[in-house]
């Protein structure tokens, strides 16, 4: 029974993966653009750092690792769930989608996972390769950091996906979806450490940001990777990260219930 249910999602996952593989030019275009951004960012930090060492031990060299890894992570944090919700609301297919015997958000998740696998193969590896050749081979700070990095990365992906799904569902009840998605995009862009590490921000601000979920998408795994935080700090922050996953998952669960109910009543 459970096996049979999982099969459906696996199938959706596979189909999405195959579809992602067929968009060849998009893939090349994205790799090219992401590489340009990555290289520009590397030069940017090089020019700023010169020979300085930052108070938490970060040098221009570890900033290069940060840049390459941040570019790599941005590939893995691609989600389609909010767009899918928007499309199905606009086309009015959400009602029929929800009547199906499979969970509609389960479908979106399966699609995103399928897409992720395709992205890892066709975008992540090329970008890591280009980054390694042109900027720096991004070596992790120590072998013992690997399990923590992998663990926090999974939690990061969970937060990222849940945020996307929650914003998608929120947009469902609001009207102006595009603007809302923009808000989310820029919050993540600027407050997660993906472009600028938050240790550049004043202490009061990074203290506040450490309470918000955004930094747990990019900043934490990257800090673990380049070793710019102490073990104690990492443990404490991973705990907050875990709490955020739980909070967002609960919120997601409640919202999806509400949305489902709303669709059932209104018929989409």
């Amino acid at each position: 029974m459970l096996n049979g249910r999982l099969d459906k999602y696996l199938y959706i996952c596979k189909i999405r993966m195959i579809r992602s593989f067929t968009y060849k030019f998009e893939v090349y275009g994205n790799i090219l653009m992401q590489s340009i951004i990555m290289i520009t960012t590397a030069f940017f930090w090089k020019a700023l750092f010169k020979n300085e060492t930052f108070e938490n031990g970060v040098t221009a060299d570890s900033m290069m690792t940060y840049t390459v890894m941040s570019a790599a992570l941005s590939v893995m944090f691609t989600t389609g769930v909010e767009r899918r919700i928007q499309q199905s609301v606009e086309k009015g297919s959400i009602a029929t989608d929800m009547m199906r015997p499979v969970n509609v958000f389960g479908i979106f998740l399966a699609e995103d996972i399928g897409n992720l696998i395709a992205l890892i193969v066709q975008n992540l590896f090329p970008i890591l390769l280009i980054g390694s050749l042109l900027i720096k081979v991004p070596v992790i700070v120590s072998l013992s950091a690997i399990p923590m990095f992998v663990g926090s990365l999974f939690l990061s992906m969970a937060i990222n996906w849940l945020l996307a799904a929650i914003f998608g569902m929120w947009a469902f009840t609001a009207i102006s979806m595009d603007a809302l998605f923009q808000v989310k995009k820029h919050l993540i862009r600027l407050l997660s450490g993906s472009i600028i590490p938050i240790w550049f921000f004043p202490a009061w601000l990074s203290d506040i940001l450490n309470l918000l979920p955004f930094v747990y998408i990019y900043q934490l795994p990257l800090d673990i990777y380049i070793g710019s935080a102490t073990n104690d700090e990492i443990c404490r922050r991973m705990l907050i990260q875990l709490v955020w996953v739980l909070v967002l998952a609960t919120l997601y669960y409640l919202l999806s219930k509400k949305v489902l109910k709303k669709v059932m009543v209104q018929g989409g």
């Binding site: 102006s176 595009d178 603007a179 809302l180 923009q182 808000v183 820029h186 919050l187 600027l190």
Partner: peptide, 17 residues
Amino acid sequence: SNILGWLISNPIQFILG
């Protein structure tokens, strides 16, 4: 509601930037 959305989202982006 679109106006409101963009009035919030665009300034946020550049003020943060």
